[in-house]
Design a protein around this nucleic acid. Sequence first.
RNA 1: GCUGAAGUGGUGGAAUUGGUAGACACGUUGGACUUAAAAUCCAAUGUCCAUUAGGACGUACGGGUUCAAGUCCCGUCUUCAGUACCA
Length: 1014
Amino acid sequence: MKYDFNKIEAKWQKYWAENQTFKAVNNSEKPKYYVLDMFPYPSGAGLHVGHPLGYIASDIYARYKRHKGFNVLHPQGYDSFGLPAEQYAIQTGQHPAITTAENIKTYRRQLDQIGFSFDWSREVRTSDASYYKWTQWIFIQLFNSWFNNDTNKAEDVSTLEAVFASEGNTNVNAVCDDNIEVFSAKDWNAKSSEDKQKILLQYRLTYLAETEVNWCPFFGTVLANDEIVNGVSERGGHPVLRKKMTQWSMRISAYAERLLQGLETIDWTDSLKESQRNWIGKSVGASVSFNVLANNENDSHVEPVEAPHVIDVFTTRPDTVFGVSFMTLAPEHELVSKITTPEQKSEVDAYILATAKRSERDRMADVKTISGAFTGAYAEHPFTKEPIPVWIGDYVLAGYGTGAVMSVPCGDERDYAFANHFNIPIINIFDGVDISESAFSDKDKTVIGNSDFLNGMNYKKATKRAIYELEQIGQGEGKTNYRLRDAVFSRQRYWGEPFPVYYVKGMPQMIDAAHLPINLPEVEKYLPTETGEPPLGNATVWAWDTEKNEVVSNDKINDTTVFALELNTMPGWAGSSFYFNRYMDPENPNEMASKEAMDYWQDVDLYIGGSEHATGHLLYSRFWQKFLFDKGVVPVDEYAKKLINQGMILGTSAFVYRIDKINFKSEKDGSPFGWYELEKTIIVSKETRSNKDFIKELFKETLAANNSLDKKSYDYVVGNYDEYKVNITFSSLHVKVDYVNASDELDVEALRLDSEFGKEYVDAIFIGEKGEVIKGNNDVYKVGREVEKMSKSKYNVVNPDNIVSDYGADSLRLYEMFLGPLEQYKPWNTAGITGVHSFLKKLWKLYADDNGLKVTDATPTKDNLKTLHKTIKKVQEDIENFSFNTSVSTFMIAVNELGAQKCTSKDILEPLLILISPYAPHISEELWSQLGYEGSISTVDFPTFDASHLVESSKNYPISFNGKMRFTMELPMDMSKDEIEAAVLANEKTQEQLGGRTPKKVIVVPGKIVNIVG
RNA sequence: GCUGAAGUGGUGGAAUUGGUAGACACGUUGGACUUAAAAUCCAAUGUCCAUUAGGACGUACGGGUUCAAGUCCCGUCUUCAGUACCA
């Protein structure tokens, strides 16, 4: 009986599929357990070995829980809307649905061959109409809701309308747009339908508004904040501009506080929670209003006018309000044009223009340079009534707070630098602090002075008092500010969910949920229209007939009952924000999931996925869950109890080093002699790159021989080598890791023939470590190595298909786990897989040899039992701590020990199989059935640990002298402290170590160690 | 700058509460088997000194606590990740 892993794995994968072994039921006697993976976007490149890491870990856990008697839900699906399929469609004309379906097929094949215990009957695809029906449905629910600050939850818009009709909006405490008009019930009832709709839109949880968005010209679409990294797009690194557009937004800011508080209740990693906290960015302080003084040109004296402009600022330090010596507005602030004096206009305009020209990136890269301009205007200090100059400066961001700050140079580094740069006076309001060198911002040590009613107070007291005084004069109040911005929800793309929205007189209308889904229309091409509309503008059948309640041809729009549909589509995160709920009841045509299903499954017990989604998916999905909870749709307001971030598996790239240029310079005066464009590509090795002598050899043996240099130059260089400085520039070029063996040796001939690299290497000269030219098969060229992210462009991608066919899925699973801790980043090295592969072969040999099964009914020995129970204990602990790498080691030790013990006992080998089954399910199933069992091993009870088998009668004590271990001594466990001490001191080795001296002290820790202090 | 995580052989990594540092593998070297190769098996493998016996050093660096420190405390350096003029 041979371990034919390919045959065994195919057999059991077929068995699991045919018997629906891992199908979860929505009610059961067993306790429930929900293990979720972040579903993949099915890219055209397929899976590489890095992708399944988290899936393997979650699969082990799911299988373990089944052994432990749980009803396990372990689903998988596809986040199948997205940019790459659309980019591909633009290039080839191929419908993204076709590309996506093909990619999913590849993914499914690859996932199946790794032997996951997914319940595929629950598969979801976000691009399926039967799925996005519910994405659209949730959108409608959001549109029909507003956030009531009094109840701290979302409520139906109809309640808001009722309040408006009966008492206006003065008493409504809602999260809504900033500049909302105040109206009475009478006002409201007198308004036209359009006006009412406009006002309601300012309250809805998803709303249409002209907002400044991140526009990416390359993709022709807007991007969310979390899709931008360092001022460029996360995908592809394309530039991003600020642009004003009318877009759908999600009022996630309404949930800022609850998103923050909710973090306390869930078991997610600290770093991830910290990321979300930073992203939410709560700061507590006050808003303060400053009245702008009217400018009297004939007099330097200034005084307020009747209806002055008001500059609102947010500050975390209201206690320093007496230290304000100027104000700074963001250059984009709307008041700038209104308050700038004629004399300052040209300067201010020039500054605004200069700032607008600077890209976001420049602005971020250059934070040190201080720049700004004086508007000529003054504002009045709320307490001292002194005039305060109003400046603009780009260190104040339009997007944060109110886009304006009260500048307190004595207490803020940036204000300090700004004041110094422009010679603005600095007022010191801190007792006993020298601010001649820098600002003082230590809240804890603050004692306020020179500040009227705040004198002598500490930070806490002064803050409270300042807010109280501001409230008294109606020029401020306590306020909490969040960095979290509302999320733009429109994308100018084709391959996304269509909105269930049509427009009447410019106002958005929801299609009744009964008519969902609104299917994505067909278009001729996937690019924006000539008039700059999104791709859906190309659809000819894309209008809503309000009588027939169906999508009809655009040319009917002139009918009074047919209206234009929304042309934007939803962003990538829409579909992924509730999929974990849909898995609970994925085929339900009437509800997102039935109440019974959601009440049964409740929430995800274990969620595994990448940390790159910290401020995107993992925040948006928590937001939607809280909203759905408010609406009574879902039973819990946090959907994932525990979340683990798997680390990335990195690729080990292979490099060759190409000579780009050779420069010669005189050693004497540095004057250049020239440089050579090389006729042939020359590839040197990592070592020769830094070896000066090789250059000489290079010229002698290679360049001259290949006529790369003319004779004169050759003589010149080689003959007078010492007189010339030779500078060589190299390029490090990625080559395919497939052509490199375990010893880093490159298959040069294969590389030459690879058309993917063009003609680059066909005639290239390869030079080895010692400067020798690589000719035959005996010469060795070693590549350079570097650990990088796995990516196609770096030619370092390792495909799991090859690993599975060469070593088997069980080897792949074990090896991915064996590589290191789950959360850690670690490099992939295919060569190492032989270790786990030979472990599986050894495991097999424990059960069977050429003559067949060798398992017997022999009574297990004490050693057998000890090995087994020690393994049960360790593996169980490891799985529960998600320390999968150490359990693989434990299995290896167990198999090595049982092999040495020549164990054939059924009572040992059967439980061992169950232990290994979550990790290596195929081999376990096969041996389990060879042992004569019917059906799958997957639900067999996990072996019970019996501590009595681990009780030792003696201990091999390490004997230390002054903390240094010298030798060991076997002593009975039941010896008393004194007996141990006596026994150790009596030992001749002890006497030898002491050399006649008497020990000062002897430390005996029974069962652990003996330390003799001399 | 701030926040978080980490730093252990040639490599990936082990090491419960402070208690034999380097488990388990990879790689390397030597050996067995073989006509040969593959596969398999055995042995060695932190560094340095020593023929051996044995010894010294050793968990980024410098201190400290302790009978005993990879683990605890103080300081420094480095790397990775996130974030950044957040008022």
